[in-house]
Design a binder for these strands. Structure first.
Length: 323
DNA sequence: AGGTCTTTGTCTACTGCGTT
DNA sequence: AACGCAGTAGACAAAGACCT
């Protein structure tokens, strides 16, 4: 006894294209015009598709045209198929295999960069089959995960390159001193560097010698700041919260604090030129064999920021590179 | 009433597959 | 290779429903 054909076997894919045009034109006649066939041919095709799918796909009469629930589901699936087929067009033309899968990105929070956002927009268009998972974490956790060879790339503060962690400097970040609106210095007309030396500090956990924000601690030490650290956090947003509360003065990246200054929550303090540059690095495992998508992402991001490509020979051919 | 849109029935052309 | 069969796509004609 013959088995009933599974859905994909009994469905004629060509009818899906006709159905997509019908759904877009919201009319069989207009679909026929666009497909360069007669309206009856479109009607026949729709009926055949409804027979194959086992239910009505379109509620249609002279007054009304609407996809049924089943029709909407099929339309969504057909769009997805269409999108995947369209990718093949550029793939075949370029001779480069389509990149698919998932790219995991670990990012430090409150990273502000128009260049990165523009890069991501372009990357999304170029590789629509590649899913992106983004998790925000403190830099120390990102480096730990990358060092454990988890299948991820990171955007983090990275004080040094090691055998396990490779890095490329990406986004320059100038750190400066700030106070919140509840701090006594916020409303003082003129503030000099001398006024800051005895002020209590809000700091990052990583704001210690040898850690990723050591440059901030070095500055305090070098310029003989005598105030004590009265509050600390591992995250830029939480440091801001402590500054808003008025615990003390603290360091923040200018890019992440700019909006708060404009909106009257923070005040930028001397020195005018800031106190240290701590770039955000693109980091990846030095031990794990990277996926083609990861290499393309790394090279593309370095291109976007005008940095040297770490994998210049790889191009975008899908060739893989280890450390 | 005439025009438009959709549906239905019938026919032809084409293609793929199995058989000879 | 040639043939026949089955399935599919699409054209044509006709009819029904609805709008102006």
């Amino acid at each position: 006894m013959p088995q009933p054909a599974i859905f994909a076997d009994r469905l004629h894919w060509g009818l899906l294209h006709t159905f997509l045009v019908i759904a877009e034109e919201k009319s069989l006649s207009r679909a026929a015009l666009r497909l360069n066939v007669t309206p009856s041919a479109v009607s026949h095709s729709l009926r055949r598709l409804e027979e194959q799918t086992g239910g009505r796909l379109v509620d249609r009469n002279r007054q009304r045209f609407a996809l049924t629930g089943q029709g909407a589901l099929l339309h969504e699936a057909a769009l997805d198929i269409c999108k995947r087929i369209n990718v093949l067009d550029t793939t075949f033309a370029s001779g480069v295999p389509a990149i698919s899968g998932t790219l995991n990105l670990l990012m430090l929070s409150t990273l502000v960069s128009d260049t990165f956002d523009i890069f991501l927009t372009d990357f999304c268009k170029r590789f629509p089959l590649l899913a992106m998972h983004v998790e925000t974490l403190p830099s120390s956790i990102i480096l730990k995960k990358i060092g454990q060879n988890l299948p991820s790339l990171g955007l983090a503060l990275c004080p040094r390159e090691t055998r396990d962690i490779r890095r490329a400097p990406l986004i320059p970040q100038r750190y400066a001193l700030y106070c919140g609106r509840n701090h006594p210095l916020f409303t003082r007309e003129r503030v000099t560097r001398q006024d800051l030396l005895a002020e209590n500090f809000v700091s990052f956990f990583s704001d210690q010698m040898g850690d990723s924000l050591a440059a901030l601690a070095e500055y305090r030490e070098k310029h003989r700041f005598t105030g004590t650290v009265v509050a600390s956090a591992n995250d830029q947003d939480e440091v801001k919260r402590l500054l808003y509360a008025g615990y003390g003065i603290g360091c923040l990246a200018d890019d992440s604090a700019r909006k708060d200054v404009l909106e009257g929550r923070l005040r930028r303090l001397p020195p005018e030129k800031g106190i240290a540059d701590v770039p955000v690095y693109l980091v990846w495992s030095g031990q794990r064999k990277l996926q083609p998508a990861e290499i393309i992402f790394i090279n593309g991001l370095c291109d976007a920021f005008g940095r040297e490509r770490p994998f210049p020979a790889a191009g975008e051919t899908g060739e893989t590179h280890g450390a």
